[in-house]
């Protein structure tokens, strides 16, 4: 399986925020900024993700307060397949889902998908990570690129 965290750290696609007074829209923008920095996506790319969540609700927030903000494959301004990783100290409020359940996230994996193959690899790997609670807890405590790699090494995912 692809080592997503190595790529995230090498490409500096990670950041840490306090999350104080940050709306979910702003959080999505911040999580995509590291992708804008190296030209993986356009500065406006995040707006498509925001309108998608506005339209369909916070279905991109999964268990364990993990968010995977994303839009369609080959969206405008998605120049490279990449993942913007972000940890927020405070939980970001995404509102409620259709059952009235509160959706909050402090771990962001914001997706840009330009090639189907790479996108598929990213999704396969993320599916494994998102079920690995120990890994997610360790990632939420990360304060540096080294911490991210250490968390990934300490809690590997079992492949089926």
């Amino acid at each position: 399986m692809k080592d997503i965290f190595k790529e995230i750290v090498e490409k500096k696609h990670y950041r840490f925020i306090s999350g104080e007074n940050v709306s979910w829209q702003e959080a999505v923008r911040l999580s995509a900024e590291t992708l804008v920095a190296d030209g993986s996506v356009s500065p406006d790319f995040y707006k498509q993700i925001v309108s998608c969540i506005e339209k369909y609700g916070p279905y991109v927030v999964f268990d364990y307060n993990v968010a995977m903000p994303h839009t369609t494959e080959n969206a405008d301004g998605a120049y490279k397949s990449a993942i913007g990783f972000m940890v927020s100290e405070k939980l970001i409020d995404f509102g409620c889902d259709e059952d009235g359940e509160k959706k909050e996230a402090n771990l962001f994996f914001t997706l840009s998908s330009a090639s189907s193959e790479e996108h598929m690899e990213n999704i396969m790997a993320l599916s494994q990570y998102f079920m690995n609670e120990d890994l997610l807890n360790a990632l939420k405590k990360a304060k540096s690129g080294e911490d991210i790699l250490a968390a990934a090494a300490a809690y590997p995912c079992e492949e089926e």
Binding site: C52, V60, H70, E73, L111, H119, I123, M124, L126, S127
Partner: peptide, 18 residues
């Protein structure tokens, strides 16, 4: 199926395959 047919539906497909 998911909103965009790109993210969660692909995750679903993988899980169904398993």
């Amino acid at each position: 199926c998911c909103a965009n047919g790109a993210g969660s539906s692909l995750m679903m497909e993988n899980a169904i395959k398993k």
